[in-house]
Design a protein around this nucleic acid. Structure first.
Length: 254
DNA sequence: ATGGCATCGCGCCGATGA
C-alpha cells in the first residue's frame, strides 16, 4: 500500500504531470494540495479514466485539496468539523481501513502577521480533531503540506531562515504537539540523505542549488508506523518542464 | 543580492505563496 502527498500548485496547470506521474507510479492513494479549482472545474472524468476514485473540495484561486484512490473511499469529510473555515484545506476519507487525512496547512506569511495567528489556530484545531479521530481509527495517516520544517536539518540554511515562518519555535511546537498524540514522521523512521527537502523556491535556482525545505510530511499512527517499510521524496517531477515547486512524498506500508 | 519565479484574476499589476 503506497500513500502519497503532493502539493501540485494548481491542478489545472499540473493535471498532465499528475497523470503522467501516476502512470509510472501507480500508487494506491494520492493526496493533493493547492488544486486552486472550484468543484465545478475539477477534472473528475480525466482522473477516473486513469483508474482513480476521487474526493475533493476546492475554491477559487487559492487552496483546494483532493484524495485520489484506487480503492473505495467512505466517510468523506470536507474540512475540520470543529473549525469553521471558508478556506478549503482538509479532506479525509477511510480507505482500506485507514483513516486518510489530506491537509494543506496555512502558510502563515510571517510570524508577526494575522495569517500566522490563523495558522496556529488552524493547526491547534487540527490537533483537537485528530485526537478525536484517533479514538475512532487506530490506523490513521495525515498527509499534506504542513508548511512547517520540523528541525534545522530540514532547512538548507537554518541561519538564513531565523525569524521566518515555516521554522518558528511556535510552529515547530505545534507540529511536535500533534506528533505527540502518538504519530510518527514516517520520513524519519528511515535513514535519509542529508539535505533532503520537499520544496524548493522557483527563484534563484532553488532546486538546482538544492536550496529547499522539508515541509511536506506523512504522519502515521503507531499501528501504521509499524507497517511502514519506506518513505521517500521523489525529486523526478521537480525536474520536469513547468513543475510544481513541491515534490511528492511516498510512504509504503507492508 | 529584500532580488529572483509561478499562478490567478473580468489582467496588462497586485496579491499570494514558502
Amino acid at each position: 500500500m503506497k500513500l502519497v502527498t503532493w502539493n501540485v500548485n494548481s491542478l489545472k496547470v499540473r493535471l498532465p504531470q499528475v497523470l503522467q506521474w501516476l502512470e509510472t507510479n501507480p500508487v494506491d492513494v494520492l493526496c493533493i494540495q493547492e488544486t486552486k479549482l472550484t468543484d465545478d472545474k475539477f477534472p473528475q472524468a480525466e482522473i477516473e479514466a486513469a483508474g482513480y476514485q476521487v474526493a475533493f473540495t476546492g475554491q477559487k484561486t487559492y487552496n483546494g485539496v483532493a484524495i485520489l484512490s484506487k480503492h473505495n473511499m467512505t466517510d468523506i469529510q470536507k474540512n475540520n468539523p470543529q473549525f469553521e473555515d471558508e478556506q478549503q484545506r482538509i479532506i479525509a476519507a477511510t480507505i482500506e481501513g485507514i483513516r486518510v487525512i489530506c491537509a494543506y496547512v496555512p502558510n502563515g506569511q510571517a510570524p508577526d502577521s494575522d495569517k500566522f495567528q490563523y495558522k496556529l489556530k488552524w493547526f491547534a484545531a487540527l490537533e483537537n480533531w485528530v485526537r478525536e479521530e484517533m479514538t475512532r481509527h487506530t490506523k490513521l495517516a495525515i498527509l499534506g503540506d504542513y508548511n512547517i520544517a520540523p528541525e534545522d536539518r530540514d532547512v538548507h540554511d537554518p541561519a538564513a531562515w531565523v525569524g521566518m515562518n515555516l521554522v518558528s519555535p511556535e510552529e515547530r511546537a505545534a507540529l511536535k504537539s500533534l506528533i505527540d498524540l502518538g504519530l510518527s514522521d514516517s520520513f524519519r523512521q528511515f535513514e535519509q540523505a542529508e539535505k533532503s527537502f520537499s520544496w524548493w523556491d522557483y527563484r534563484a535556482l532553488g532546486f538546482r542549488l538544492n536550496k529547499g525545505v522539508r515541509i511536506d510530511h506523512i504522519l502515521l499512527s503507531a499501528e501504521l508506523a509499524k507497517q511502514c517499510t519506506s518513505c521517500v521524496i521523489d525529486r523526478v517531477p521537480r525536474k520536469w518542464e513547468q513543475p510544481s515547486d513541491h515534490a511528492p512524498v511516498i510512504a509504503t506500508l507492508a
